[in-house]
Design a protein around this nucleic acid. Structure first.
Lengths: 228, 228
DNA sequence: CACGACTGACTGAATGTTCAGTCTAGAAAT
DNA sequence: ATTTCTAGACTGAACATTCAGTCAGTCGTG
C-alpha cells in the first residue's frame, strides 16, 4: 500500500529498517498466498524494490521466511505480554489471552491471522529450525498460562486445579479452535469460539464470566462469520 | 516397494486399479515430503511408471492431489464407521473414535498420519474444492458424535448435556491435540493426548473410564514418542 | 574515492504438461 | 486360424514456464 514510499536514504539503521520491512512484507504475502506459494518477487514488489535486494539482505529465501516466522511469533508474544500486563485480575488477563488467539485483532501489524498459524505449523513439521521456534513459543505460552493460573489461585480468584495439565488442555483447545476458524467452519466463528473457550475456562477455574461486549474494535470477520 | 510388480495387463478395471494405486502413492509422498513438495515424478517413481501416465489419468497434478485428499477422508470415515459398528456401548464407540484420531494406527493403509491432516487443512485454506471436502467430512463426524451422545443418553450411559456444543468442543479439542502430536510436542505424546481427551469426555458425559490397556496394536510412534 | 545500497539482466535448475508415437490385448473380418 | 483393426495403456523426449540466486555495474553520500 503506502509502503512504496518508504525509500530509504542511506544511513545507519537502514539495514535494520529494510529487514523489518521485508519481514513484514513476507508475512503479508504468506498470509495472502500461503507459505508454499510465496515468491521473493512478491515480497520485493510489495515494497517496491528489486528481488535481488531481498537476497542481498537475507542470503536465501528460506532464511527470510524462517526469520519472518520467528519475527511474527516474537512480536505476537511481546504484544500479548504487554496487553496482559495492563490488566488487573488474572481472569481478565486470561480472557485477553484467549481473545488474542481467537478474536480478530484491530491492530493491522500482525493481525491475528489464523491461516498464518496453520502454515507455520506445517512448516514446523518439515523444517527443524522452524520446529524449534514453534516449540519455544509454545512453551513460553504454556508457562504464561501456568503462572497466570497460579497467580489467580493465590489471589483467590480461581479454584485449585493442577495448572500443568490445564495449560496443555487450553493450548490444545485454542489450537483446535484456531483450525476451525482458519478453515472458515460454518458453525465456529471467532466469537462463538471465544465464548466456548471462556465458558470452559470459567467453569473449570470456578470464576464468574459472562460474554460482555467483547466485540473488539474489529468488524470484518465477526459480522461476516455470523452471516454464514 | 512391492508395488513395482503391479504391472497392469490391459483389461477393464485397469483404469480403476491404476487410479487407486496413484492415489495411494500420492498420499505416501504427501506424508513424506509434504503437500507442497510433492512432485508427480515422485508419485510415478513410486509405482514404477512414467510421469506422463499420471497426467494421463488425472488431467492435472492439482486434480490428483485433490482427489487423493478426498480419497483419504472417505476411506478414513468408512473405516471409522466400520470399527465403531463393531462395538457394543456408546462409550466404547466414542473411545474408538478418539483413538482413531489420536493413537497411531497399526493399519498401514491410511495409518493415522497427523502431518497429513495439517497439510490438508492448509490446502483447504487456499483451495475451494478441498475446503468443501473438509467441511463435509467435519460435518459428518460431528453428526456421528451427536448421534453417539444421544444414543448413550437414551441408553442411560451418559448424563444429559447438549450434544451440539459438545461435538464442537470435542472436534476442536481433537484437532488441537492432533496439531500438538503432529508437531512432535515434547509434552503431548499420542497416549497422553488420548488419555487427556478421554478423561474430559468421561467427566463431562458422566461415565466411568480408566486408561485400560489401550496401547493399540501399534509400536513405532508410541514408544518413540515416549522416548523424547 | 570508497563503500554500502541497490538494480537489471541473466542463468540454471526444476518441474508440470504436451505430444507423437509404441505396444498389447482382444474384437472383427477373412 | 490367421490377419487386420482398434482402443486404450503407456512412454521418451521435448516444451514452456517459473523462480531462486548470481553478477557486474550504477548511484548517491560521507
Amino acid at each position: 500500500m503506502s509502503e512504496q514510499a518508504e525509500r530509504a536514504q542511506a544511513g545507519p539503521g537502514i539495514a535494520q529498517a529494510r529487514r523489518g520491512q521485508m519481514l513484514r512484507a513476507a508475512l503479508d504475502v504468506i498470509s495472502e498466498r500461503g507459505f508454499a506459494d510465496t515468491r521473493i518477487t512478491d515480497i520485493a514488489e510489495r515494497i517496491g524494490i528489486s528481488p535481488a535486494l531481498v537476497i542481498y539482505y537475507f542470503k536465501t529465501k528460506d532464511q527470510l521466511l524462517t526469520e519472518a516466522i520467528r519475527h511474527y511469533e516474537d512480536t505476537w508474544y511481546a504484544e500479548g505480554k504487554r496487553r496482559m500486563d495492563d490488566l488487573p485480575t488474572a481472569a481478565a488477563r486470561l480472557e485477553e489471552f484467549v481473545a488474542m488467539n481467537l478474536l480478530p485483532d484491530s491492530d493491522p501489524e500482525l493481525a491475528s491471522n489464523w491461516r498464518l498459524w496453520l502454515d507455520f505449523w506445517v512448516r514446523a513439521t518439515r523444517d527443524a529450525s522452524v520446529a524449534v521456534v514453534r516449540r519455544e513459543s509454545d512453551e513460553r505460552w504454556r508457562e504464561v498460562i501456568v503462572s497466570l493460573v497460579l497467580a489467580g489461585q493465590r489471589a483467590g480468584e480461581f479454584v485449585r486445579v493442577d495448572p500443568q495439565p490445564f495449560s496443555i488442555f487450553i493450548s490444545a483447545l485454542l489450537d483446535g479452535l484456531t483450525v476451525q476458524i482458519a478453515l472458515d467452519d460454518p458453525v465456529v466463528d471467532p466469537v462463538s469460539a471465544f465464548e466456548l473457550c471462556m465458558r470452559y475456562i470459567a467453569d473449570h477455574l470456578g470464576f464468574e464470566w459472562t460474554p460482555s461486549g467483547r466485540a473488539h474494535g474489529n468488524s470484518r470477520t465477526v459480522s461476516a462469520g455470523a452471516g454464514r
